[in-house]
Computed example of a mutant assay.
Amino acid sequence: MAGKELTSVSRVLEESVPGKQVTIAHVIASPVPEVYEHLGINAVGAIGILTLSPFETAIIAADIAAKAADVGVGFLDRFTGTVIIAGDVQSVEMALTSVCRTLEMVLGFAVTTVTRT
């Protein structure tokens, strides 16, 4: 074709293939009241946050946490893999540690260290 340039077009397909992992396990020891307000949960001491993949693992993690310590499940999203628990600091930390240990030892997950602020 005279006078016309042919242009090459590249297409990239991206696909998310989640591994079996706990990416965040964090304790907020003394949240400001606004955090509770925005989450829509009662201020009971500490907040624990988990992010997991595959996302459905959030259901398993919430169950493990609630059975391991005196915590309440404030939020669970099986579409993003997010779990938020609340209770006193020691219970929240124990619950997150139990979740990480169980997912690692029983289900072969890669887990992160439980952190705290």
Rank of each mutant, 00 (worst) to 15 (best):
A2P: 01
G3S: 13
K4C: 12
K4N: 15
E5M: 07
V9E: 05
V9Y: 11
V9D: 02
L13Y: 04
E15T: 11
E15M: 15
S16E: 11
V17T: 13
P18D: 02
P18L: 11
G19A: 11
A25F: 10
H26D: 05
V27G: 02
I28W: 00
I28E: 01
A29I: 06
V32F: 15
E34H: 05
V35P: 03
Y36Q: 02
L39A: 10
G40D: 09
G40E: 02
I41V: 12
A43V: 05
G45H: 13
A46T: 00
I47C: 01
G48C: 03
G48T: 01
L50A: 13
S53D: 13
S53H: 12
P54K: 03
P54F: 03
F55K: 14
E56G: 13
T57G: 14
T57I: 08
A65Q: 08
K67V: 12
A68C: 09
A68G: 10
V73Y: 01
F75M: 11
R78Q: 12
T80P: 07
G81K: 09
V83W: 12
I85H: 02
I85D: 00
G87L: 05
V89W: 10
S91Q: 11
E93M: 11
L96G: 10
C100L: 08
C100H: 01
C100V: 10
E104W: 03
E104T: 06
E104D: 11
L107W: 05
G108D: 14
F109N: 07
V111A: 04
T112P: 00
V114C: 04
V114E: 04
